[in-house]
């Protein structure tokens, strides 16, 4: 019987080593919640303070030097930066508590796979914004961010894949309804992040 216990713990050790070395599981659920809150605050500020209203059609050209437009872009960039910093900080803390490092081969793989679609999409969005095509911002950021999460999900929690698919769907839907871009953006980056973060926290990190 004792011998059998050994075999069972061998199998358990093998499974744990495989998972720990191929998946980055320190990604904090709270980071998702915080990113969602930043996005909601950002969307609110853009809408209420700056009075940002997405153009009626995709091909409406706005003046890229207009203040409301510039403020909205600045808010979006601030949301992105705060989200990244929060995710890095909270994940670092989780990893430290488990005696691990956030700089391991699976986190590097995850970042590599995540950043490629993200940078491509970010550059495309900037290029179109500079030409005043503001209505593309929400669909493209949702779509490319969804693709990058889908990609990254192989190296972390599987659930990230579903968040990716939902964001891709929202991105495509918002192409059809460009005047609701800000709403779609708030749902995707705000609400879905919060739901995902709470789910991961409850399921894995309590």
């Amino acid at each position: 019987m004792n011998k059998n216990q050994d075999y069972i713990s061998d199998i358990a050790a093998i499974r744990m080593m495989m998972e720990r070395s191929s998946k980055f599981l320190s990604l904090s659920g709270w980071a998702g919640v915080m990113a969602g809150l930043y996005a909601l605050v950002g969307a609110y500020l853009a809408h209420q303070l700056v009075g940002f209203v997405p153009p009626k059609t995709l091909l409406t050209v706005v003046d890229p030097t207009e203040t409301g437009f510039l403020f909205s872009v600045a808010i979006a960039i601030a949301v992105l930066l705060f989200s990244i910093l929060t995710a890095a900080y909270l994940s670092q803390r989780r990893a430290e508590r488990k005696g691990e490092s956030i700089r391991n081969s699976s986190s590097k793989q995850m970042l590599r796979y995540m950043s490629t679609p993200l940078v491509a999409g970010g550059l495309l969005t900037i290029i179109l914004l500079l030409q005043g095509l503001a209505a593309f911002a929400a669909p493209l950021t949702l779509l490319f961010y969804g693709l990058s999460l889908f990609n990254a999900s192989q190296f972390t929690f599987n659930e990230l894949r579903y968040l990716g698919i939902l964001l891709i769907t929202l991105g495509l839907a918002s192409v059809l309804l460009p005047h609701l871009g800000l709403l779609f953006w708030a749902i995707g980056f705000g609400l879905l992040h919060i739901v995902y973060g709470v789910y991961i926290h409850m399921k894995y990190q309590r």
């Binding site: 050790a13 093998i14 499974r15 080593m17 495989m18 070395s21 191929s22 081969s105």
Partner: peptide, 10 residues
């Protein structure tokens, strides 16, 4: 066992 586990998924 650990070395083999880790190398089989990386």
């Amino acid at each position: 066992l650990g070395i083999m586990s880790v190398l089989s998924v990386n």
